[in-house]
Amino acid sequence: MHAKRLVGRGLFYLLVAVIILYTLFPFYWAIVSSLRSGQGLFSTALIPSDPVWDNYVAVFREQPFAANILNSVIVATAVVALSLMLSLTAAYALGRVRFRGRGTLLMVVLAVSMFPQVAVLSGLFELIRWLGLYNSLTGLILSYLIFTLPFTVWVLTTFMRELPKELEEAALVDGASPWVTLTRVFLPLMWPALVTTGLLAFIAAWNEFLFALTFTLSNEMRTVPVAIALITGASQYELPWGRVMAASVIVTVPLIIMVLIFQRRIVAGLTAGAVKG
């Protein structure tokens, strides 16, 4: 009995090790590759000998990668701020006021968030050009609302519902209007939810590719994913893999650190957003 249990434990930890290796190895390999240059890149040794930083220098020298990072930061920050502002009031209405059509509206919001982006691509393209926002960050910010806004509305509504009803009633007795209740009673309590939701929306906006690819034209206006996808080398047929890996590592490391710091919050936010069956 005891031996059997030990074997079970062993197998369990073997499984854990395999899963961890599977999830972490590709990123590890990207780091290793980014530190190699020239012919060294083609080595398949698992541990890099004498790491070099050439690729990292090249990423910034050969293309406007700093501008790309800045673009991504601006777009993601702006769209998150905008989504949170809009969805905060919407979530109050959807989460705390009974009115006809509330359920339908929530379903529509959910449906929009699950929509294939390509389904609005031509209409949005038309709209963005008509507004004169083609090849501009504003155009991207506007278009990103299509996926960040439904998400933040949905998650904040779930959080908003959890706030105690008596708190709102106490505010009512104190003479607070709905707006005052929202801004001075609920908003201070929603900070953790806002951070979580904002973080998830930020990651989604940071990672977006299709709109960024379609609605921008010049290297200077591109966001990070597009820049990384379109890195080209000396020859059209051979990608500068070292540089690609270096660029990938640069933008992924902060993201991973952020995710690990906010681990618990993210898990809570992801599952709060998911509907219950």
Binding site: V16, I19, I20, T23, L24, P26, F27, W29, A30, S33, L41, F42, T44, I203, W206, N207, F209, V224, P225, V226, I228, A229, L239, W241, V244, M245, S248, V251, T252, L255, I256, M258, V259, L260, Q263, I266, V267
Partner: peptide, 29 residues
């Protein structure tokens, strides 16, 4: 530790995942 580990791939942008794996799938190297 494991929960942290499984969150890493989730946090990596799809485009970057594609590039990383593209390099790992490289026919020669």
């Amino acid at each position: 530790l494991m929960r942290a580990a499984v969150l890493v791939p989730w946090a990596i942008p799809t485009v970057i995942s594609a590039q990383m794996w593209g390099w790992m799938y490289h026919d020669l190297y």
